[in-house]
């Protein structure tokens, strides 16, 4: 007999018996659990306890810390742009300091009140919006 055929024979002859009927099993189960309290961990803050929380990804944790700072910076920049004099040309100018004419959708100056690694600036000339991403910000050590 071939090995594969023998395996079929083994599966036929040595299979486990059928489990008890569904209604009988679950009837007994319901009787048992009626008297048993669930082991359901309850958090002190009263939040839902549907299983252990998964660790949030790093980018999400960092984002939650940076979001208020970014929002404040973005609003400040938008206000500065809005208050800038009417541009004569549509050229973009970065880090324009005092003495230079601000153009439409131009970041004239940035004041970030914390240490950071780098800054990424996105401008939208159509909406005159400016988005500033500050990477590696450290609000614990404010800088100038």
């Amino acid at each position: 007999m071939k090995w594969s055929t023998l395996l079929e024979q083994i599966r036929h002859d040595f299979s486990a018996p059928e489990p008890p009927p569904e209604d009988r099993f679950w009837g007994r189960f319901r009787e048992r659990v009626r008297a048993i309290p669930r082991i359901t961990p309850v958090r002190e803050d009263g939040a839902s306890s549907n299983g252990p929380r998964r660790a949030r990804p790093v980018w999400l944790r960092v984002g939650r810390v940076l979001a208020p700072a970014l929002a404040a910076v973005a609003i400040a920049l938008l206000l500065r742009v809005h208050q800038a004099p009417a541009p004569e040309t549509d050229r973009r100018q970065f880090s324009a300091r005092a003495g230079k004419t601000a153009t439409l959708s131009t970041v004239e100056d940035i004041d970030v009140l914390m240490d950071y690694d780098s800054v990424f600036i996105v401008e939208d000339p159509k909406s005159r919006g400016t988005l500033v991403w500050i990477l590696g910000a450290n609000s614990a050590t404010p800088g100038g």
């Binding site: 189960f29 659990v33 082991i39 299983g51």
Partner: peptide, 16 residues
């Protein structure tokens, strides 16, 4: 099997 399911019922919140 019955004991297994009782334990699973009690500890279901621990299934991550």
């Amino acid at each position: 099997v019955m004991e297994t399911y009782i334990k699973a019922w009690r500890a279901l919140s621990e299934f991550g």
